[in-house]
Design a protein around this nucleic acid. Structure first.
Lengths: 201, 201
DNA sequence: GTCTATACGAAGATAGAC
DNA sequence: GTCTATCTTCGTATAGAC
């Protein structure tokens, strides 16, 4: 609909869809700089999006921008996790996921982390809606892992617990990798989780 | 020395040692609000410390305050971890440590997390010194855990990896507990780690 | 060591023109 | 949809009196 209007009026944005660019720019900033440091100015500077249309696209201002970024990042990551857990066995899925993170960490020179986790760590008083959304996203990941383990004959109690450990350990390891500027914590984490995934049930 | 001068001049601060109060106030703020949100104003408001002496005690300003808070928090936590790992077997030490966190989480209504982790997650461009300090603290914890496992006859390679997983998983679980407002992720994490700590070596 | 006052900049948000 | 002010608040930092 924006396209038709553009064709009619002859106006044109600098790049396709400023709103979408702002959202992806916010996600990138969340990864690298965290929630508090993800200001409107920073997103605009990084994306070249027009300052004048921020409150047009996000009437709720900065909080709404962060919310839409969290929604988008959460959906993308959740769909990938659900895809992996449905098409692979638990250990293979975990290794695939870890490989993606290894790539993200190295490619960003250990600057980029998990945007959902960034909001989870920083959000407390302000924006309880963001905290709620982040909690739902983690719950979705936990559910995907639990169901996968159940399909592979893990007892329900163990499946839930192992899913909790997996989410906690991967997220924690990503932070350790960033701060140490090496992938060892992630490798170590996956290697040890392998014992639980392949060993006893 | 401050006490003698106080006795001589007759002046007196509102409470003992403004500098120490600012540091503990900064640690509390780091726990609850994160690094970016830990402003000088917030620390002063929370502690009632005098605004006029901030740059007297911390010539480097906010960054130095955060640095001293990180030093203090890191030292306290490291000493406790080293105490636990020296006086208990691996599983008991882990459970003691988890019990402390369960208490901290519940008592703070799931608002307080780990101050070192908060800085690790948020610090990127600004203040590389803080990032370096945080990395050293995590390395110290990792070392304490590794040496404990070595003393309990774990092979070196496994000891290192299990120590990495433990640090990552506990830190990650604390964040999940905060965002979900329940201790289940921590309980699950410890229960599953128990398998690795007591099962195979 | 502590106070007040103030300079300065960054950031969120609004108003009104185009 | 986008632009240019502008307002306001907040946060860091400094200066100078007590």
């Amino acid at each position: 609909m924006a396209a038709t209007r553009r064709a009619r009026t002859g106006t044109r944005p600098r790049l396709p869809d400023a709103r979408a660019r702002m959202i992806t720019g916010a996600i990138d900033s969340l990864r690298v700089h965290g929630a508090s440091a993800t200001s409107i100015d920073r997103v605009l500077a990084a994306t070249g999006a027009p300052r004048g249309s921020v409150y047009h696209h996000f009437p709720g201002g900065r909080t709404e921008l962060l919310g839409r970024a969290l929604d988008a990042a959460g959906a993308t990551m959740s769909e990938y996790i659900e895809h992996l857990t449905r098409t692979h066995d638990p250990m293979t899925a975990l290794e695939q996921f870890a490989a993606l993170w290894r790539h993200t960490l190295c490619e960003s020179d250990f600057r980029a982390g998990c945007p959902v986790f960034a909001i989870a760590v920083e959000t407390n008083d302000d924006a309880p809606e963001l905290a709620g959304t982040a909690a739902e996203i983690f719950a979705r990941w936990h559910r995907a892992l639990t169901e996968q383990l159940l399909r592979h004959d893990y007892p329900p109690a163990r499946a839930t617990r192992l899913a909790s450990l997996t989410v906690a350990a991967i997220e924690g390891a990503i932070v350790l990798c960033r701060i140490h500027r090496e992938t060892t914590p992630l490798e170590d984490t996956v290697t040890e989780l392998r014992v639980l995934y392949t060993g006893g049930q």
